[in-house]
């Protein structure tokens, strides 16, 4: 599974077709989204950090759930993917620290809610998710099978 792997950074997205593994490391409150078109065996992994894009210049669309999801769908469609076939699996949205005050605590939760809402608006099926809690997640996504694997510290790997 590891011969052809691509790393996806924070506020970043990568695509692969046919075979290959996309990896994004240490998702805390951030969310990793695995987009998959099974017929084309086309997969994209997006790593977003915040729920809504309110930037004036919109220089970094991939940092936010709303613009990130739309940009990823656009790029997949440009490669021939069909919206009716695209499915999504998500992981992340944890709360790393229990601190009172500010919006520090609920960014993970807000990210999850925003991703749910945007996927619904865009009519994209959410197949599986592993979100919330207070554990960091590394997400691996195999584009051939559409299978994801979540690696955490002090917890068994989850295949989804």
């Amino acid at each position: 599974m590891a011969d052809k792997s691509l790393t996806v950074g924070i506020a970043d997205m990568k695509m692969a077709r046919g075979e290959g593994v996309l990896i994004t490391y240490a998702l805390g409150s951030c969310i990793g989204l695995c987009f998959h078109d099974p017929r084309l065996r086309l997969g994209a992994l997006l790593h977003i950090m915040l729920p809504l894009n309110m930037e004036a210049g919109r220089k970094t669309p991939l940092k936010y759930a709303d613009t990130g999801i739309r940009e990823t769908l656009k790029q997949m469609e440009a490669r021939g993917a069909s919206r009716s076939r695209i499915t999504v699996k998500i992981a992340g949205g944890a709360k790393m620290f229990e601190v009172a005050g500010g919006n520090l605590g609920n960014i993970g939760q807000r990210n999850v809610e925003s991703v749910h809402a945007i996927l619904k608006q865009e009519n994209i099926r959410l197949l599986a998710e592993d979100v919330g809690g207070k554990v960091a997640r590394t997400l691996l996504f195999d584009v051939a099978s559409g299978q994801g694997c979540i690696r955490s510290y002090g917890r068994q790997d989850i295949i989804f």
Binding site: I10, A26, L27, G28, M49, M96, V135, A136, R137, Y153
Partner: peptide, 8 residues
């Protein structure tokens, strides 16, 4: 936990 997640 993973320091990447702590730093984010």
């Amino acid at each position: 936990d993973m320091q990447g997640a702590i730093l984010t």
